[in-house]
Write a protein that binds this DNA or RNA. Sequence first.
DNA 1: GCCGTTTTCGGCCCGACTGTTTTCAGTCG
Length: 569
Amino acid sequence: MQNADIARALETIAILLEIRGEEHYRVLAYQRAAESVAAAGTPVAELEDPRSLPNVGGTTARVINDLAQNRTPEILAELAEEIPAGLVELTRLPGVGPRTAGRLWRELGVTRVEEVAALKEGSIAALKGFGKKSEEAILRAARSHTSREQRMLLDEAAAAAERLLEFVRSHPAAGRVEVAGSLRRQKETVGDLNLVAASEDPKALVEAFAAAPFVEEVTSRGATGVSVVCAGGVEAELRVVSPEGFGSLLQHFTGSRAHNAALRERAERRGLSLSEYGLGEAGGGRYEPLRTEEELYARLGLRYIEPELREDRGEIEAAERGELPELVEVRDIRGDLHVHTNYSDGKGTVESMAEAAIELGYEYLVFCDHSQSLRVANGLSPGRLEEKMRAVRRADERYPEIHLLCGAEVDILRDGSLDYEDAVLAELDFVVASVHTAFRMAGGPMTDRIVRAMHNPHVRAIGHPTGRLLNRRDPYAVDVSRLIREAAATNTALELNAYPDRLDLSVPHAREAVRAGVRLTIDTDAHDERALSFMRFGVAQARRAWVERQSVVNCLPWPEFEAYLREGK
DNA sequence: GCCGTTTTCGGCCCGACTGTTTTCAGTCG
C-alpha cells in the first residue's frame, strides 16, 4: 500500500471511531497520523519505524505497518464488523458528520447515501433534534450526491497515471507512451485514465498490462487494447498502435469529444475523413496513419492546438487564423503569493518553505498566514503577525537567492470588513482576502461582502473567490461576473487557487476575468513544502482558460513585481 | 491516541454558525 492509501485507511478509521462515539481525541490521533503519512516524503514502508513521523505512536505505528504490508489492522477489522461501510460515504455529504450518519443508521436503518436519498419526507424531521430544515438539507445533499459521479482530482489522477506510465514504458516492446483523455487536457477532475502506446508488438504490451500487479480486474481485452480496474477502483485503458499511427491515436483519445467532432466536420468539408486510424479520402475506407499530432493538425490547415484548449470553445477557429494564445507555462511562474507556515495552520517553517521555493527557482515568495478570527487555523493576532514579520525579514536576509515577503490571508468578515485594521494591513507586503465563514449567505450580500473587501486599498487579491471544494462543496452564492467587473475597477487581482480540490476560479470564470482585463494570481495555498508543486495544476487550469503570461501577476520578474507592489492599487 | 525544558498525567485548536432548542449538539474550517 502506498502512503496515500494508508492515509486514507487511517482517515476511515477516524471516521468510524467517531461514528461509534469514541472520545474525540482518540479520533483526532488517527486523523493526525493520517496527515503525517500523507505528508511523508518517503514511502512509510521504507521507514525503519513509523514512530519517527510526527503524531505517530505505538498504536498507530502498528496500524500503519499492517497497512503497509497489506494486512488488515485489527482495529479496522473490528470497526468494519460493527459499522456498515456506506456510512463513511454518508459523512461526505455536506452537513452530515459522523454523529448524524451514526444516528441515521441506528434510528432509521439507512447505511448508504442512496438509501438516505430515498427516505420519505418527514422521517428525518421526526428524529429528536432534527427539523424540517435539517431534513431538507440532508435530503438535498443525498440526492445531488447520488447524481454526481465521483471523479478523481487532478493530483490523484496524475499520480495514478504516473505509476501506469512507468509500468508500460519499462516494457521492452513499448515505444512512445503517453497519457491521453481528460487528464492530458488537464480537466479539473478525471473519470478514468487513458494511455496510448506505440509498439511493433501490441499484443505483448496489452498482455503485460492486463497482468500488471496493480490490476484488479480486466473488464475488456482485445488485440490492440485493454480496459482494467486498478487497485483502489481507478479505471484505466491502454490502446496500442504501430509508431506510424501514434499521432492519430493520441489525438483521438485526447479528445474532447466536442473538439474531435468539430475536427471531423472540418475534415469532411475538405473531402477528408478523420478517425483514430488517421486521415483518408471521404468514403474511401482507407486511412493514412499520422505519426504526430502536429502533422494531423497541419493537414487540416490548422496550427497545433495544445491539449488544454481542445474543448471546441473557439480554438479551432483561432488555430485557423493563427491567433491561438501563447499559454502561460509553469516555467513562467516567478513566485508564489499565497503560502502558509506553522505560524498559522501550515506544516512548514518560514525557512523550510523558503528553501523549497528556492529549489523551484522562484524569485520571490509571499507568506500569507490566516488572520486572527480564524482560530481553528491558528490565525495570527496583530502581535504574532508582527513577530512573524520579523522572522520573515530575518530569513529574507539569510536567503539572498530569493525575496521573502510577509503578507496575510485576511478573513473577509460577514459584513465585508477585514479581520485586521488598515494600519496592520498597511504594514504588509501583500494582502490576499478570503471568505472562510458564513458560506451560506445569499448571493447579494455575499457578493457585496467580497466587493467591499476589494475596495480596501491594501487588498491586492481575492483568495479562492468562490470557495468551492471539488467533489465536496459547491461554490458559495456569489455573482462572479460582478466580482470580475469590480476587480477590474479596483485593480484587484483574482486568485486562481492551484490546490487540486479547489482550482478556484473555474475555467470559465478565469477566462472571463482575463478577457475583462483582470489580472490573476496563480497560487498554491501550500500548507507544506510539497504542496508548492501544486503550481502545475493551477497553471494547467489557467491554460484551459486561455491565460497568457502577461495576465498573471506572479509571472512578473522580481523588479517588475516589486514595482507593482510599490505602486499600490 | 500522542506528547513532554511546565508534565509519564492531563492536556490536546476552538469559535462561529445553524437548527434546534430553552441551554445545546453537530458541523465546519
